[in-house]
Nucleic acid binder design. Structure first.
Length: 244
DNA sequence: CGCCAGGGCCTCA
DNA sequence: TGAGGCCATGGC
């Protein structure tokens, strides 16, 4: 099933099209713009993507976006403020995103990290993917998915994001085949070896998986209306499972 | 009421 | 290194 990974993308893209991730908060509202495809992200946008990626950890984007909008509304969405304001006060603002004490600490860890970079976001950009990834992963509160999201959507690095939806969708599609998801790095490498090296494609792919995972490939999946059912082991009632 | 959400860290075997 | 506990609100 060498071409399944790419086929899966093409089917989803054919049905849903561009997803214009990562959304940015504008006037307190979450907006999916397509203009970013023609330009690099600004430093402010990258910080917002970083903060949003932390706030949405195991949390619906709606709740995370609300907290992000409040942070922005309070003029706290900048490195200096996040670094200087007390964690308990940040926690109060982002309460609606859940895990607010942890996330406040994570935002402060992020701000501390960025404050220690003389070259700012440009310094990360110029490190290249691998060094930038290691660098982000060294920050407390930034794990693999959060790091890859930041790298892919903030810096346009070619790295694939694996989240719980990805694992769910892949594990279902691959049921009964010789290959199925393993751990994070395994899935990431497996996918990247089978896709064209195209950043926009990677960005859309992950966003499309999230869209499908939210609306159709739920824990209790709606296979009857799923555009992938024709190529999905789960929809065909298979049960065997092996790992990559 | 229970389940779920665009994870990550820590602990312990 | 892998499983399990913990963090927590809001929407359905």
């Amino acid at each position: 099933m060498d071409k399944t990974i790419y086929t899966l993308y093409k089917v989803l893209f054919g049905v849903y099209g561009h997803q214009n991730w990562w959304p940015i908060i504008e006037n307190g509202r979450c907006r999916y713009l397509d203009d970013y495809r023609k330009r690099a992200r600004t430093d402010d946008e990258i910080l917002e993507i970083m903060a949003g990626a932390v706030l949405t950890q195991n949390t619906s984007w709606e709740n995370a976006a609300g907290a992000l909008a409040k942070l922005k509304g309070e003029a706290l969405l900048n490195i200096e403020s996040l670094d200087s304001v007390r964690a308990v006060d940040i926690a109060k603002i982002i309460k609606g995103s859940g895990y607010y004490n942890q996330k406040a600490a994570k935002l402060k860890a992020l701000a501390g990290f960025l404050k220690g970079l003389p070259g700012g976001m440009l310094e990360i950009r110029e490190m290249g993917l691998e060094a930038a990834r290691e660098c982000l992963l060294s920050v407390w509160g930034i794990g693999k998915e959060t790091a890859d999201s930041i790298l892919l959507y903030g810096f346009y690095f070619l790295t694939f994001v694996i989240d719980s939806y990805t694992v769910r969708v892949f594990s279902r599609v691959w049921i009964g085949e010789n290959e199925a998801p393993g751990d994070y790095e395994k899935i990431r490498c497996y996918v990247m070896e089978r896709l064209p090296r195209n950043t926009l494609l990677y960005q859309d792919y992950h966003a499309l998986i999230v869209l499908l995972g939210k609306n159709i490939c739920r824990k209790k999946p709606l296979c009857e209306i799923c555009p992938l059912s024709f190529m999905c082991g789960y929809a065909h009632g298979r049960t065997a499972l092996r790992t990559i």
